[in-house]
Design a protein around this nucleic acid. Structure first.
Lengths: 338, 338
DNA sequence: GTGAAAGCGCTAACAC
DNA sequence: GTGTTAGCGCTTTCAC
């Protein structure tokens, strides 16, 4: 059922129908009524492809992302969604291929679908952005990057994981802890590296040495938190705190510490990242970093759509190309002073 | 940059370019070479809208879903994604509006975008499917429903939550528990209702009465698990087990039980649903129901695309309109016999 | 106020 | 093998 069918039933030309639908141009009330009735009767539904083809914009936002079952991407995506729903945008989702080389392909796919703008959430899997040269990006709809390494010229929305990790480390120091181990995420990724850097910074600042024996690596799983705890215990003599790069690994630490007969926080303070809904109910409740991920998604989507609008109107585009959102520490029993 | 530009550069007509791109019709090697070179040079990218408009299929799967930060939808969506990636499909995501009336609108939007097929994950927010009449559905691309109440004629992929809850209750009974309380999810929703029904079934089967005082209602949050525990304790004399409708509420129960000085599993057995990655590390590790959600997503996507193919080819469509996937119990320390 | 015509970028019949 | 011709369903410009 197309515009033509509606026009036939309402005995008008199909451009008149188009006018009624788009509210452009004046139409007699009587005509409008007839047209609307015909639309109802036929269950007419505009073909967005045809409209997009003719209009050059699709009211569609592309998203390149890692699996939604991961904490970060799912929260950010929810923020994007909320914003898009308000604006009447639909989301076209392209999952990030694992192969490091295919990012351009992923973006090309979205561009081929004529999305108005793109938000890149790829950091979980891919933070080598060497492919993101202006020459390539210029052929695409506007792209906003979430949580990537700072880079001049690339529109980005980010959270400063280095600052967050440093702040949490300072909190541990303020509780009198001195031998603070760190269990990082996969060091190929930008976010875990930043968290390690922040921890280092705060340690140095306090006159302590963030020696390599204080740093072990996990894979985000609780199990790797358990292993990390054991490694640290075997390497560090007076370990009195552990900063884990996410709550799940911190949970593994709590678990392993209990098994090892260590009391938290008395013998060992433990802190994580994410503030997953479960962490307030761990034994003991977990101190953690709460990052405004949904807000990040909302802002990234907003920036992307703004950039698109600016491009359509040949304007210079919004002034600030990068936004940094502040996090907050959630202090719970797992780090309270002994 | 369009087919025309490529054709001009390669000095051929633009249909020849189309042939090269689609691999249809014979083209001289020499011509093909020239065309491919031109495509490279210009960075040509097919316009999927135009192609979809002309071809009548878009290689796009629509998904109607609740927020991805919820456990169920995020897992199912991941399954859908994995399958779509293999098939070269992109996902067009429509978030389920909160208002109960707008489901048709959501589906209409996706249909307007000419998706080839649709997967409905709406159960988290909306399981009144009275709007899903054949007369309406026939105007849409094929729709496969996930986890909806059984209904003849509607293609569906589901997990039998009633059976799962009954099985878990039987496990608790087998451990010698007799006073088994249940903390349900929101009873307006189908899945929580099914879990309650399964618990009832198994209780009756064992000659026990699933009396109303044994049933309390939560909202999926750990906090509501805490409240549920307290309610049950105040109402039931010899309570010796609690089945929570998700792991998060079960965590609340573990937390509150510890505070109340009850030992798990000695004084109280606790079980949940979901097998979230954290639950193996709770104190004590949590017995729970593991449901094949990613598999469910994969199968739903597969069914949907199959239905679309059948429709294109005017075939009758796959025989079985509904699939039920089996879950498994994950038995851990929280329910071991005392 | 309303209608006719052109064109968005592509595919698919058909000619040559 | 390659080019010509119609559309796909819609918006937009310009007559009437």
């Amino acid at each position: 059922v197309t515009l033509n069918d509606v026009a036939a039933l309402a005995s008008v030309s199909y451009q008149t129908v188009s006018r009624v639908i788009n509210g452009k141009g004046e139409v007699t009330d009587e005509t409008r009524r007839r047209v609307l009735a015909a639309i109802q009767d036929l269950g007419y539904r505009p073909n967005t492809l045809a409209r997009g083809l003719a209009r050059g914009r699709t009211h569609t936002l592309g998203v390149v992302t890692a699996d939604f079952y991961r904490f970060g991407p799912s929260r950010i995506a929810t923020g994007i969604q909320r914003h898009c729903q308000e604006l009447g945008y639909l989301l076209l989702v392209q999952w990030l291929s694992n192969t490091e080389s295919s990012c351009c392909q992923d973006l090309n796919d979205l561009a081929g679908h004529q999305v108005d703008a793109i938000v890149w959430l790829g950091t979980e899997l891919q933070d080598d952005l060497s492919w993101a040269e202006p020459a390539f990006l210029d052929t695409l709809p506007p792209v906003v990057f979430c949580n990537i390494p700072p880079r001049p010229g690339l529109p980005a929305a980010r959270i400063d994981n280095r600052v967050d990790a440093a702040n949490m480390t300072r909190h541990l120091l303020a509780q009198g802890r001195r031998h603070i181990g760190m269990i990082s995420g996969p060091m190929e990724r930008f976010i875990p590296r930043e968290r390690v850097a922040g921890w280092r910074e705060a340690m140095v600042e306090a006159g302590l040495s963030p020696s390599t024996e204080l740093l072990v690596h996990g894979d985000w799983s609780a199990d790797s938190g358990v292993r990390g705890f054991r490694q640290l215990m075997s390497r560090v003599r007076h370990l009195d705190a552990i900063l884990a790069s996410n709550d799940r690994m911190a949970l593994g630490v709590l678990h392993a510490a209990r098994e090892a007969g260590m009391r938290v926080p008395d013998d060992l303070a433990v802190a994580g990242f994410d503030n997953i809904p479960e962490s307030a109910f761990f034994t003991p409740p977990l101190t953690t970093v709460q990052q405004p991920l949904m807000e990040l998604g909302r802002i990234a989507a907003d920036m992307a759509i703004d950039l698109a609008k600016a491009r359509w109107e040949n304007q210079p585009g919004p002034a600030e190309a990068a936004v940094v959102l502040p996090s907050e520490l959630v202090i719970r029993a797992s780090t309270r002073s002994c």
